[in-house]
Design a protein around this nucleic acid. Structure first.
Length: 507
RNA sequence: UCCUUCUUAGCUCAGCUGGUUAGAGCACAUGACUGUUAAUCAUGGGGUCCCUGGUUCGAGCCCAGGAGAGGGAGCCA
């Protein structure tokens, strides 16, 4: 049997085709049933007319419920009003699988409920679009590295040693010995780069951070390229080309998906502009408001934001009260009441978010004003600084104390390590962390002791310095954080099919 | 681990200073309507007000403890 897909209906205009999928919506009036069929490739309205199909099939169509699966045969007609530009005039309809009381209604839901129904939520249009963009990003990542001559080589997921400290690790039992789920393939990447020259790993990573924020997952996918004979500056060039290439692929190949989620693509298009490179010292001055960027000051723009949030809160509250009064007026049509109630729901949602901001911004302001030189940037500091830019920025040369033991000490100033973080614009913050690796065995041993890591677990790693060490560098990209920024999602949990996070193991 | 907001019908939410039998919209069921776009209209069924204890003549509302969720800090991709 020939398989037809909704996304290429245009090839069959005027012809009879059979579509198979699920009913994502149904409306009926006398003699007509409208079924919105989705088949994974797209959405298409199918019109079942009593006149054309007869009594029996029409009854079948009337029995269609949300998300029941169907096979519909009919003629493809052009119809400008429809989403894909086409609709199907049904000649026959067959129910494949019933669906009773589908829990996800045609209206807004809360997060907790949707997360509990994640297996069904994935069917909705917005989630469909996000997952398609995720897929495109993954494909573009492979495409970029393969074209650049990298070889994909994966690191193990069971590890005996912690690469960046022992906390935040998931412990498991490995034939009676404790083993940890990998939180980075970094060290193995270095070994593989010394075999292959340029490699990248692509796999899951596990971090037992008890974080409940919009940017944390316990299980996420990381891409970690590692290159022999690269210094930090060549590394930054690569990161920039890489992100530019991936985002450009999404812009070129996911126009429809970006439109569905309502992503304003202007900022994504800025990806062609050079990424500003700031040293840690510059970044700190900007965060503390001592240095302006593009005519904007971190502190004052945050203060402005706070006052506009406060103004908006008052406006929203007034509108809610007005609409609530309006609903109470007697004789109002049911439809108008419904409309107003929907508006009130939306406004309340916005009010909740605004109040959240009203609570958080003063804390962020406080932490920016009192930032202590020498500390790592916190989540709020990243937000504060990235709001001033419309392209990703790179912050490099960090105080060596706050960075991982394997980062190379800056030869020009031993206070600094040659690490680099890439922060996504629009307040998204860190999406990439990387740097040039330490090649000096003595300095590494010093650092391992300083961090109180078990030396014997790193003997193999030190071998890489003993047998033909070379300058090398690499970075790690959090796939979900990139997806979240590209789609401008409010939370990482929508960027992965089944998120695993603190307090969430099902479904 | 800490700070903060929240938990009322299947879902999203009202519920005034503590006062009769807890409400609306959506969803669902039945009916009306020949082009609907979250269709509309009419009718109907649907409740352990998160749990435990307390105050009170009386608790969805007040108090204490607990559970769960959202957001944030720390940590991080």
């Amino acid at each position: 049997m020939q398989k037809y897909l909704i996304n290429n209906l245009e090839d069959y205009e005027g012809q009879e085709v059979t579509l198979m999928g699920w009913a994502s919506n149904k409306r009926e009036s006398k003699g007509l049933v409208f079924v919105i069929l989705r088949d994974g490739s797209g959405w298409c309205q199918c019109v079942v007319s009593l006149e054309l199909v007869g009594e029996a099939l029409f009854e079948e169509a009337r029995k269609v419920t949300l998300e029941s699966s169907l096979q519909i045969t009919g003629k493809v007609l052009k119809d400008e009003r429809q989403m894909g530009g086409f609709e199907l005039q049904a000649s026959s309809i067959k129910l494949i699988g019933e669906s009773n009381d589908y829990p996800i209604a045609k209206k807004e839901h809360g997060v907790d409920f949707l997360m509990d129904k994640r297996h069904l939520w994935l069917r909705s249009q917005r989630q469909w679009a996000i997952m398609r963009i995720r897929n495109k990003i993954i494909f573009a990542i492979h495409e970029f590295f393969q074209k650049e001559g990298f070889v994909q080589m994966d690191a193990p997921l069971f590890t005996g040693n912690a690469c960046e400290g022992t906390s935040n690790l998931f412990e498991t039992d490995f034939y009676g010995d404790p083993a940890y789920l990998s939180q980075s393939g970094q060290l193995y990447g270095e070994a593989m780069a010394f075999s292959m020259g340029k490699i990248y790993t692509f796999g899951p990573t596990f971090r037992a951070e008890k974080s409940k924020t919009r940017r944390h997952l316990s299980e996420f996918w990381m891409i970690e390229p590692e290159m022999a004979f690269y210094d930090i500056f060549e590394n930054m060039d690569l990161i920039e080309n890489f992100l530019r290439s991936v985002v450009s692929s999404v812009l070129a190949g996911c126009e429809k998906e970006l439109a569905i989620i309502g992503r304003d693509t202007q900022i994504l298009k800025n990806i062609v502009k050079p990424f500003p490179r700031l040293t840690y010292d510059e970044a700190v001055r900007i965060i503390k408001g001592e240095q302006d960027v593009n005519g904007k000051n971190a502190i004052t723009s945050l203060e402005d934001e706070l006052s506009s949030v406060k103004t908006r809160i008052i406006l929203v509250q007034t509108e809610i009260t007005e609409r609530e009064e309006k609903i109470k007026t007697p004789g109002m049509k049911k439809g108008e009441i419904g409309f107003n109630q929907a508006q009130i729901d939306k406004l309340k949602q916005e009010l909740g978010d605004l109040e959240e901001n009203e609570r958080n911004i003063p804390q962020w302001l406080n932490s920016a004003r009192n930032f202590t030189y020498g500390n790592d940037l916190g989540g709020s500091d990243e937000t504060v600084i990235t709001r001033l830019f419309d392209v990703p920025i790179m912050v490099y040369n960090w105080p060596h104390e706050v960075k991982a033991f394997y980062l190379k000490r800056d030869p020009d100033n031993s206070k600094f390590a040659r690490g680099v973080d890439v922060l996504a614009p629009e307040g998204y913050g860190e999406i990439v962390g990387g740097g040039e690796r330490e090649t000096d065995e003595k300095l590494l041993i010093e650092k391992i002791n300083e961090h109180q890591l078990p030396m014997e677990a790193f003997e193999w790693y030190l071998d890489l310095r003993r047998y033909g060490t070379v300058p090398h560098a690499g970075f790690g990209l959090g796939l979900e954080r990139l997806v979240t920024w590209v789609c401008k999602l409010p939370h990482v949990r929508e960027s992965i099919p089944f998120p695993r996070m603190y307090g969430r193991l099902l479904p």
